[in-house]
Design a protein around this nucleic acid. Structure first.
Length: 837
DNA sequence: TGATCCCGCCAACGT
DNA sequence: ACGTTGGCGGGATCA
């Protein structure tokens, strides 16, 4: 249709980016183009916005200026242009903004400009889809794209229909850390290598079927299903997200980010990413079209990430040509960023294999042992179960986790350390920091082992790439997947990860197929320790591939193999259904019409929010530390919430409001430090932990491990009757029961103390109850004198089968999942040149 | 051309 | 029955 495109695309006429030309458009072509709402100023020239825009490109800037200048005259201009066009005989299309102006990237910029990077809780940080769409003058569909990516980074969360909460970058740091961890667990770096290698082989060694086979087999084990990494306090979100067949942009986005975080030169090409993210269908015919689609999606994601400045496009030049890729430019993600929070992250795997981990699901899985090892299909009868569970979750509202600054010294995002620093062994950094802050003995104690471990984590350091892959296995860390995770278990394997010093620990529930099992075994891999991180002359089995990688920045990096073109020969052309019906029109129109109406109809049902099952105790971002480090006002804000009701997956909804909780001294926050995982199911499958006792805990109890642990435990220990909210026990001062909500003021300083106390109480309680094997007592959240260090908890607990309800602390390390670090893999070298665009 | 990726159809899902 | 989400891929643009 639009036959021509005036080369003058951005002629002054194109205020495009804005909505000023709407009228034109409307009349012209695209009928569906909604938004005629001339609501200019979508993006009120926020200084911020301007900056972004200008930063985006001079072109845009000038355009902007022009726009402003002629703002008033725009009408005239428009008319004029219209006229011209008519005269020219060109369709009005000319007046349409150029493609670029409509790019997702730009749109994202605009979108981001509307919200503060670090919103304060006092602000009304919610996003209304309709409004945004309208103001930015784009279809909702586009907004979804952005939101999905942002959601994957926990920068926003879906509150309700049409409504999202804006968190900004408060959680970014944590999220990235989590993603990195998960990425490591999934051995993405290896996968990347494999993928590259495979490609290479296809290109050069077509005849070498053997290798390929091997490679494939390896790759296939890495079945990467959809798993959404969640952050505490935001689980529900993910849950809701899980419902859909998550091929979701969300998941893809996370994975994409993971790739960056785990790969050494933090450069990832779309092709490689697409392949890996495709989840390994590679075995089969590399469905070309599928890959293509994936790449399309990745472009979308990349655009958003670029807008967030987390990545940037670069060109990787290799023998076979230039290839575009993206380079991570986001904050350095250290495994152990000093952060005052302890986060519990869980990974939800919705795919057919592993649903959103609703406890029931888990149980079900146990009940219906999957036949296959990796591909168990959900029993039909479970579908409903799952559904309902998800449903519940969906309805649940999360406690408005107020964004909290993660650490006093840093914002959630911050590249905690200058890149230079990053080069230093993390351990050193942390130790120093700790010293300066007078870390507590205890903490040190806990972290020690981890520190050691971290030291050996290649990802931790860039330059000093520690080749001690083997060290991993030797340095068990607090975290680490239970060493007991059976490689081939069909059920979800719980993995507890923690980073004591950072206080960031989380649990990842991996599908067995993902559970990193020892990988060193694979012969197809050339696993060798690398003497130095920046070794570039690694030899590969394939001499032909010797190349050197270089980046502009001259980053230290390890040679990587950047395969080029697609290798696969010819695939049968994808059969596409040409059936295309036109009815979107009606829809978009309706949309417009409804916009106004909807606009006023959204409500923020804050009156009663439920926590998703399995999350009785929300691990909000509020921790003693952070709170302490905040100004009172902010503190107050942090914890100010609407009435929230917590529900227990087991007992059902517990009519407890947050305030009540507080009254009971069990504020969500205080539990935060506790990272207890409970996954009977998983545990049950763990050989080491396998214990019949576990079975005693009724199946229904199986639940999503996580913050709900306490509740769960208490209930199951019968300290509190199921269905009842809180145990009337000596340790807990009050007994909250009413379901009515009250407002709570969390700003009081006492809160912290109280909370801490409560935590202790709880711990004691557990202890007394014989729930805690021992460590609970040792785990005592400390009242941070120094906010930033307040972080705490370094212990991880999980329920072991020692008894139906026996809680024991996870040994400071149990394994070495990360036995193989990417740094130890061999990969074909190639000459790579990375150039930025 | 191939790389990008906008656009919007339409299905899954929610209400 | 309609609204919200968002997977998906045709095909327009860009380089």
């Amino acid at each position: 249709r639009s036959v021509l495109k005036t080369p003058l695309k951005q002629e002054a006429t194109s205020p495009s980016v804005l909505a000023e030309i709407q009228p034109d458009r409307q009349s012209l072509t695209t009928p569906p183009k909604p938004k005629e709402t001339p609501p200019p100023e979508p993006w009120t020239p926020t200084s911020n916005l301007k900056m972004l825009i200008s930063a985006a490109s001079p072109e845009i800037r000038s355009r902007e200026q022009r726009r402003e200048q002629s703002n008033n005259t725009s009408k005239v201009l428009q008319a004029k242009h219209c006229l011209q066009e008519h005269v020219l005989g060109d369709e009005y299309q000319k007046s349409q903004p150029s493609r670029k102006e409509k790019s997702l990237g730009l749109l994202c910029h605009k979108f981001l400009a509307r919200y503060p990077a670090y919103p304060t809780t006092s602000e009304n940080n919610y996003i209304c889809l309709d409004e945004v769409a309208e103001e930015l003058n784009v279809e909702r569909r586009r907004i979804y794209d952005i939101l999905n990516v942002l959601e994957s980074l926990h920068m926003v969360s879906h509150l309700a229909k049409n409504r999202y909460a804006w968190h900004g970058r408060h959680h970014l740091s944590k999220t990235l850390q989590a993603l990195k961890k998960v990425g490591e667990k999934k051995k993405y770096s290896q996968q990347i290598q494999m993928t590259k290698k495979r490609e290479y082989e296809r290109e050069f060694d077509h005849n070498d079927e053997k290798n390929e086979e091997k490679a494939r087999s390896f790759g296939s084990t890495k079945h990467s299903e959809m798993c959404f990494v969640e952050l505490p306090g935001m689980e529900f979100r993910a849950a809701s997200v899980n419902s859909r067949k998550d091929k979701s942009l969300r998941v893809m986005s996370q994975k994409f980010v993971m790739l960056f975080l785990v790969s050494t030169p933090q450069i990832v090409s779309l092709e490689v990413a697409a392949k890996i993210l495709t989840g390994e269908e590679q075995l089969e015919d590399l469905d070309k079209s599928k890959l293509k689609t994936k790449i399309r999606r990745l472009y979308d994601i990349a655009n958003v990430l670029s807008s967030l400045q987390l990545i940037k496009k670069v060109h990787v030049t290799e023998e076979r040509g230039k290839k575009t890729a993206f380079k991570w430019t986001g904050p350095e993600v250290l495994p152990n960023t000093p952060d005052t929070n302890l986060a519990t992250i869980s990974m939800t795997c919705p795919s057919p294999n592993s649903e959103s981990i609703p406890s029931k699901e888990q149980c079900s899985k146990n009940l219906f042992p999957s036949r296959g090892k990796q591909n168990f299909t959900r029993h039909p009868s479970l579908t409903q179960l799952v559904k309902s569970t998800e449903n519940d979750r969906r309805k649940v509202q999360s406690a408005p986790t107020s964004p909290v600054k993660i650490s006093a010294s840093t914002d959630g995002n911050l590249p905690a350390f200058p890149s230079k620093m990053a080069q230093v062994p993390a351990i050193t950094k942390h130790q120093l920091e700790r010293q300066s802050k007078k870390e507590k003995e205890m903490k040190m104690k806990f972290s020690r082992s981890v520190l050691e471990c971290n030291l050996s984590l290649p990802q931790t350091v860039t330059k000093t790439e520690a080749p001690c892959s083997s060290a991993h296995s030797q340095h068990p860390a607090l975290s680490q997947p239970l060493g007991v995770c059976p490689p081939d278990h069909s059920s979800v394997s719980p993995v507890i990860l923690s980073q004591p010093h950072s206080g960031v620990s989380y649990a990842v529930y991996l599908h067995p197929s993902q559970a990193p099992t020892v990988t060193t075994y694979n012969p197809s891999f050339m696993v060798q320790p690398l003497p130095h991180a920046n070794v570039t002359g690694i030899k590969n089995m394939n001499p032909k591939l010797l190349n050197k990688i270089t980046t502009e920045e001259g980053d230290n990096q390890i040679a990587t193999d950047e395969p080029t073109k697609s290798f696969t020969a010819k695939e049968r052309p994808p059969i596409k259904s040409e059936t295309v019906s036109r009815r979107g029109l009606k829809r978009s129109q309706a949309l417009q019409e409804n916009n106004v109406i909807k606009k006023y109809k959204r409500s923020f049902d804050t009156s009663l929010t439920f926590f998703p099952s399995g999350y009785l105790i929300p691990l909000t971002q509020c921790t003693h530390g952070s709170k302490a480090s905040f100004p009172d006002k902010e503190k107050a804000g942090l914890c100010s919430l609407q009435h929230t009701t917590y529900s227990s997956p087991i007992a059902g909804v517990i009519p407890m409001t947050r305030s009540e909780l507080k009254a009971v001294n069990i504020p969500a926050f205080q539990i935060t430090p506790l990272n207890i995982m409970l996954s009977p199911t998983s545990i049950a499958t763990a050989p080491v932990l396998r214990n019949s006792c576990l079975n005693s805990s009724n199946t229904s109890s199986a639940q999503n491990p996580s913050s709900s642990f306490l509740n769960f435990t208490l209930q199951h220990v019968r300290l509190i009757p199921a269905g009842v909210q809180v145990p009337a026990d000596p340790f807990l001062q009050h007994m909250p029961v009413s379901s009515q909500s009250e407002n709570v003021n969390h700003s009081s300083e006492n809160t912290n103390l109280q909370e801490v106390k409560a935590s202790e109480n709880i711990l004691q309680l557990l202890d007394c109850a014989g729930l805690s094997g021992n460590n609970f007592s040792s785990f005592q959240p400390s009242v941070p004198k120094e906010p930033q260090e307040s972080q705490t908890v370094t212990e991880n607990f999980f329920l072991t089968p020692g008894g139906p309800n026996r809680v024991s602390s996870l040994p400071a390390n149990s394994d070495g999942t990360d036995r193989i670090s990417q740094g130890t893999l061999y990969i074909p070298q190639q000459k790579l040149e990375v150039s930025e665009d």
